[in-house]
C-alpha cells in the first residue's frame, strides 16, 4: 500500500453493548480517509451508534476511536469542537428565523457573538438560503429545513462533518441539490465528510470512499469504484401482465425476474459494465428501449420504468455472491 494521508477517523475493535444486552457495534475496526466517505448500512446496522461514539456521547464497551487525531474516550470535548453533526431527524424549532437559530448554534459551537452572526450568515448563504433566512423556520419546505440543518453543522467551521441521512424526505430535485452541496463542501471547502445513508445509489454520486457496516461489523471499506462494479437494475412496474412481460423480456435477451407482484427487475450491463467509472448509461438506454418495446408490443399498462436505487440489502447480497472473487 502507498503511504496515505492521516485518517480522519480510526476505530479499533470498537464494541458497544447497551445495558439491555443489545450489541450495536461488534469489534468494528475501520479507517476513514480524508474526503467524502459514505457510511452505508441498513437501519439498525450501527451507524448512529458509531456516530455517537465518535462524538463521545456514548462510551464504548471496549475498543477505541480516534477522530482527527483525538481519542474519543478522553478528548471528546475537543472532537465536538472540530466536528459538525447533522442528525437524521428533524431538529429545528419552528418559531425562530434561520438566522437566529444558526447564530445561536454558532455560539454553542464556541464562536463569540459577532463571529457567530457573521458565520451564520455565511453558512446560510453557502447552503443557498438568502432572503428566506429571516423567515421563521416553520414556514420552510423540507428541502430548506435540510439546508438549515446543514448550515448549523457548518457554522462552527468544522474539520469534519457527520451527516446522517441528509437527503431524507427530499424530492429528487432536492436530493440532487443536497448532494451537489455536499460534494461542493467536500471538494471546495476542504472539509472531510462522512455521509451515513441506507441508499447507496444516492451517496455513490458524491463519495470518494465507502464504508459498509452490518450488524455492527465492518462489511467492507473501499474506494467507490471498487464498490460500484456491481450491476445496476432497471425496475419495470406494470399493473398487469407480469408473467407475459417476463417471457417477452427473456425472449429479447434480458434476464428479468419478478419482484413484488407488479414489478419486474432487469439487470443492466451484464458482464461488461464492471469498470465503475460511468453509471452504465449506454447499456441502460439500450435496455430502456428494449423494455419499452416489449411493453408496447404487449399493450401493458406501464406505471413505472426507472433505474432502481441500490438498497443496502442488495449490495450485501451482491457482496456475498461475489465474496469469492474479491481479492
Amino acid at each position: 500500500m502507498s503511504p496515505s494521508p492521516p485518517a480522519v477517523i480510526e476505530t479499533s475493535g470498537l464494541t458497544k453493548e447497551y445495558p439491555g444486552g443489545v450489541i450495536a457495534l461488534r469489534g468494528l475496526t475501520v479507517t476513514f480517509a480524508p474526503g467524502v466517505t459514505g457510511l452505508i448500512g441498513a437501519n439498525g446496522a450501527g451507524k448512529s451508534t458509531l456516530i455517537k461514539t465518535l462524538l463521545g456521547l456514548l462510551t464504548p464497551t471496549s475498543g477505541t476511536a480516534q477522530v482527527l487525531g483525538h481519542e474519543s474516550a478522553t478528548d471528546s470535548e475537543r472532537i465536538r469542537q472540530l466536528v459538525g453533526y447533522m442528525p437524521e431527524h428533524d431538529c429545528l424549532p419552528g418559531d425562530v428565523s434561520a438566522t437566529e437559530f444558526v447564530t445561536h448554534m454558532g455560539r454553542m459551537s464556541g464562536l463569540p457573538a459577532t463571529a457567530a452572526k457573521e458565520r451564520a450568515a455565511e453558512a446560510l448563504r453557502h447552503v443557498g438560503l438568502h432572503e428566506e433566512r429571516y423567515r421563521q423556520i416553520g414556514t420552510y419546505s423540507t428541502g430548506m429545513r435540510q439546508r438549515v440543518k446543514l448550515a448549523q453543522a457548518l457554522v462552527g467551521d468544522p474539520r469534519l462533518l457527520l451527516l446522517d441521512e441528509p437527503t431524507n424526505g427530499l424530492d429528487p430535485a432536492g436530493r440532487t441539490a443536497m448532494l451537489e452541496l455536499i460534494e461542493r463542501i467536500g471538494t471546495e471547502f476542504g472539509i472531510s465528510i462522512v455521509v451515513a445513508s441506507h441508499l447507496l445509489s444516492e451517496i455513490e454520486r458524491v463519495c470518494d470512499h465507502l464504508v459498509a457496516i452490518e450488524g455492527g461489523q465492518l462489511l467492507r471499506a473501499d474506494t467507490l469504484s471498487s464498490f460500484t462494479g456491481v450491476s445496476q437494475t432497471l425496475v419495470v412496474e406494470v399493473e398487469e401482465g407480469v408473467a407475459a412481460l417476463l417471457e417477452e423480456l427473456a425472449r429479447r435477451g434480458l434476464a428479468p425476474r419478478a419482484y413484488q407482484r407488479t414489478q419486474v427487475l432487469v439487470p443492466l450491463g451484464g458482464s461488461g459494465a464492471g469498470s465503475g467509472t460511468g453509471t452504465g448509461t449506454g447499456t441502460a438506454d439500450q435496455a430502456f428501449d428494449v423494455v419499452i418495446g416489449a411493453v408496447a408490443d404487449l399493450g401493458l399498462p406501464l406505471s413505472r420504468l426507472e433505474q432502481r436505487r441500490h438498497q443496502v440489502e442488495e449490495l450485501f447480497r451482491d457482496e456475498s455472491q461475489e465474496a469469492g472473487n474479491v481479492s
Partner: peptide, 12 residues
C-alpha cells in the same frame, strides 16, 4: 423540536 442532539454534539 428535538434540538438537544445539536447541543450535545457541541463542546457542552
Amino acid at each position: 423540536n428535538r434540538v438537544l442532539p445539536l447541543y450535545f454534539s457541541r463542546p457542552l
